[in-house]
Design a protein around this nucleic acid. Structure first.
Lengths: 224, 224
DNA sequence: ACCAGCATAATTGTCGACAATTATGCTTGA
DNA sequence: TCAAGCATAATTGTCGACAATTATGCTGGT
């Protein structure tokens, strides 16, 4: 955070209420922009921000208690990801989910990407990668037990991302992000946190056991 | 463009020289940010900006005669596309091209995307789409005849993009962009403008004739 | 001679304000 | 009453400046 006016280091309060029925949220130290990106992305996926809803930079800035600059950066990014669509000089709105037909194509692409990452990671025998994946799975446990949708989405994404962030294939993430984001816009299993966790645990277990075929199968079964 | 200082409406000159050996360029009216994005993207693809070269916001801003804001937006966008990589608070540098193995995966994905777009466009029987594709092909002619690499890249990208921008599948572009950008970072046919034009003309001819199979084959042959 | 710690410099991150563009409502004329 | 044109308002695009963080070079101690 920053603020050469009145901001302190870790958080900041709002001064006035917005007209959209959102609950107030605080953002803390870590890159403001990234947090806004994640927050809005999750809000869209979970339906807090409904389809076609238009977003105003100033409104979001006030809501998060920051200036328009990081909000602008975030909206730009989300637009490129496909979460939002923009008309020049006229702002952005929440985009529509894919058609079922497109969704099929997207699912296929995401499977190819993640399986490829899996293969490369297995080849590299990088123990720290396994550790990171395991740690990220652990973050998914509590949200699943509590059926906390927003956190499930967040950690589900984070887990798959950690898989794709295998060593030596850095460039893959930039392709994976828009593909997966688009898939998640039809996130349809908002019930059954237990099942969600088990599916992911199966992937990670197979990774830990260095069983590529099992990991691949569990992954493909989960990506749908 | 803007400039509440000395800018006029269509263009603007620089006031001082930079230390990087770049030639000066002018940007005109249309969204400054988009032009910077395209310029830097093409510069990376054509090798004007070599791998691992680090880019400074202020240097680019001075080079293009604008402030840091639109440059910042552009770098953010290009980072998410995978053209650049960023370390927090430390700037961006040109990223490395894909490994041959990853390149194969990427080629397959791009083919799937463009063929899918082709299919949907044929189904929709939208004449204006055909017109747009034809017009975009026409823009490719002169650069190919003159072997103007940068413009070839620009118009090559534009043509394929116009194909993907088929009606009713708006969401596809956001996936297509990083995939194709990554492919182009290994743009290897910088010789033979004639051949490049013929390949693309074959695609568009088949589209005009409403011959899906021929268009698909020409497309797959071109995407490699 | 070499390493640790510190001051300095360079660069990004954020902020508030202005310019330009687009949308919207109002007035005016037929 | 309705349509066209205009004034007004709302929103994005860009700018210059400040704050914070990170990298770098220097100094002093061992």
């Amino acid at each position: 955070m920053t603020g050469h006016s009145e901001g302190n280091k870790t958080a900041r309060l709002m001064t006035q209420n917005q007209t959209d029925g959102e609950t107030r949220q605080r953002l803390s130290a870590r890159e403001v922009r990234d947090q806004i990106i994640e927050q809005v992305r999750v809000d869209v996926i979970t339906g807090v921000l409904p389809e076609s809803m238009s977003l105003r930079e100033q409104a979001l800035a006030s809501k998060y208690g920051v200036s328009r600059a990081p909000v602008r950066d975030a909206l730009l990014e989300l637009t490129r990801e496909g979460v939002l669509v923009a008309k020049p000089n006229h702002g952005v709105k929440v985009s529509r989910p894919s058609s079922p037909e497109l969704q099929k194509v997207v699912v296929g692409m995401r499977r190819k990407i993640e399986v490829f990452a899996l293969k490369k990671a297995f080849e590299s025998r990088d123990r720290s990668w396994v550790d990171r994946v395991e740690a990220t799975l652990e973050r998914l446990r509590t949200p699943c037990e509590e059926n906390a949708t927003a956190d499930i989405v967040r950690c589900d994404l984070a887990l798959h991302r950690s898989i794709v962030e295998a060593p030596e294939i850095e460039g893959l993430v930039s392709i994976w992000v828009p593909v997966t984001t688009r898939m998640f816009m039809r996130y349809s299993r908002l019930s059954g946190g237990d099942a969600i966790f088990r599916e992911h645990a199966a992937i990670v277990d197979a990774i830990r056991d260095q069983d590529f075929e099992a990991a691949k199968n569990a992954l493909v079964a989960n990506v749908r």
